[in-house]
Simulated scan of single mutants.
Amino acid sequence: MIAIFSDTHSNRGHELEGEALAAARDADVVIHAGDFTSTVALEAFQNECERLFAVHGNADSAAVRDRLPTARVVEEDGVRFAVTHRRDGGTTGLAMFGRSRDADVVVSGHSHRPTVVETGECLLLNPGSHADPRGNRPGFAVIEFEGDDSGTLEGQLLEPNGRRIDGFEIQRE
């Protein structure tokens, strides 16, 4: 399983609870699209996750920015994820970012709004913010990799308590 987070915005820790905390602990890979805000939050995530792949966001401290890239590519079980916090140009800009990295999925943050958009070229996934939703539903995403030989992977946007926001599919190459 892959668990995907963004926009923690904390000086206290990871701010994970309920199903979000369980997903971070149980995931084979955790992707975070930036705005931990503090090294305390970043290190708390690192302590909970077996493998964390993260980027920094616009609200991250200099110490966090020094430790994380602005963008990265993560490949897991036949799926290529391009990860960034924010890209100018909206949906088009994110799709171009994904295309330039031959991505199946673009993971981004910044808006604090859990959303999934299928562009035809790649899936655009913003998990929202599990800790600081700013008027949106709190959110994170999970993608299940086991038991599917069809090449289709099932993903969900969830609230930290496990309530489903939306579902999506990813075609494995």
Rank of each mutant, 00 (worst) to 15 (best):
S150K: 08
G139Q: 14
A44N: 01
E121I: 09
C122G: 11
D149T: 15
E144Y: 11
G90L: 04
A44R: 00
E50N: 02
E76V: 03
R101Q: 15
A131G: 12
G90R: 10
V105H: 08
E144L: 13
G139D: 12
Q46A: 07
L42G: 01
A54D: 00
D88S: 11
A71G: 10
R67Y: 04
T115G: 03
T92Q: 14
V55P: 00
V74P: 07
Q46W: 01
F145T: 15
A141L: 07
D60G: 05
V79W: 15
D104R: 13
S38Q: 01
N136Y: 14
D60L: 03
L153P: 03
G93S: 08
S129D: 10
L125H: 06
V106M: 05
V55S: 03
A82E: 13
N58A: 05
D149E: 14
D77P: 06
G147Q: 06
R72C: 14
A44V: 00
H110C: 08
G147D: 04
N58K: 05
A95H: 07
H112R: 13
R134Y: 14
R87K: 06
A54S: 03
L125G: 07
V79S: 15
N136P: 08
A131P: 12
F45I: 01
G90I: 07
G78P: 14
V107T: 08
A71Y: 02
